[in-house]
Design a protein around this nucleic acid. Structure first.
Lengths: 135, 135
DNA sequence: TATTGTTATACTCTATAACTATA
DNA sequence: TATAGTTATAGAGTATAACAATA
């Protein structure tokens, strides 16, 4: 019998805010914004070079609000942005080696912090699996 | 062995957005905003009358951004706001009977929708319990 | 002087529209 | 003409500062 509890949405958003708060100091130490980290993650998986429009869509962002982030990441040598010779309107994106290292370093720290946070959960794998399935 | 997965924060926020999207049409049908519903929920549990400042703190909101919400709920007869005779600076808040009914009706619909969404999860109670503990 | 509630202002974030360069 | 990327503008949401009433 399930006792009274807050709505699922309230609990999930609360946990989400807690996780974001946990990540923020890590990102700050690496001098990367949340959007910057999201971009690094999106480019890591698919070594496939992508256009900015495709990237924006894949992370559910407007293409215009990605541009300052891409400018910054490029300026700092974490990504490369080159004109597609086959269609000079398009910019092909990819992580530099430095960008790959940065993404790995940040994610490693975040995973460690996640593990601490999940320590109290009985069956962590089941919990994570459920979260994944519900996405 | 846990296969590669997105960060916990990304998965949780994604699920959170999905739940919000699920709730929004329900709230719209009842002509209540998300903030309005949060206030109704906060006042439901504690029949204890509260001040606006206490309410704001309990839901993690700034006191100033609650005021338009309270004005609206009061105008529509869902809450009462009366001056505390013991300290005339303070407004005591409580749900009206109409407000209680409204909160119940909305939550009932949300719970039904949550159940549909959780249908695919193996051990739902464990999942909900974990979410609760992590809050 | 400090505090509750309120209003007015400023700031941040995001989306919309307008521009360029290619196709 | 249509599209990728960019820039400029406007809108929503939120926080900050200032105010009136009361303690």
């Amino acid at each position: 019998m399930e006792s009274e509890r807050p709505d699922l949405g309230a609990m999930v958003m609360r946990l989400g805010r807690r996780l974001i708060a946990m990540e923020e100091p890590i990102l700050a130490r690496h001098d990367v914004t949340m959007w910057g980290y999201v971009v690094l993650n999106a480019l890591r998986g698919s070594r496939t070079v992508r256009t900015q429009a495709a990237l924006a869509q894949s992370i559910g962002a407007d293409k215009t609000r990605l541009i300052p982030t891409l400018d910054d990441l490029q300026k700092r040598g974490l990504i490369e942005r080159e004109t597609d010779p086959a269609d000079r309107r398009v910019r092909l994106l990819r992580l530099t080696e430095k960008g790959v290292q940065k993404q790995r370093a940040i994610q490693r720290e975040i995973r460690t912090a996640e593990n601490d946070l999940l320590a109290s959960i009985d069956d962590r794998e089941a919990f994570v699996r459920a979260l994944r399935d519900l996405g």
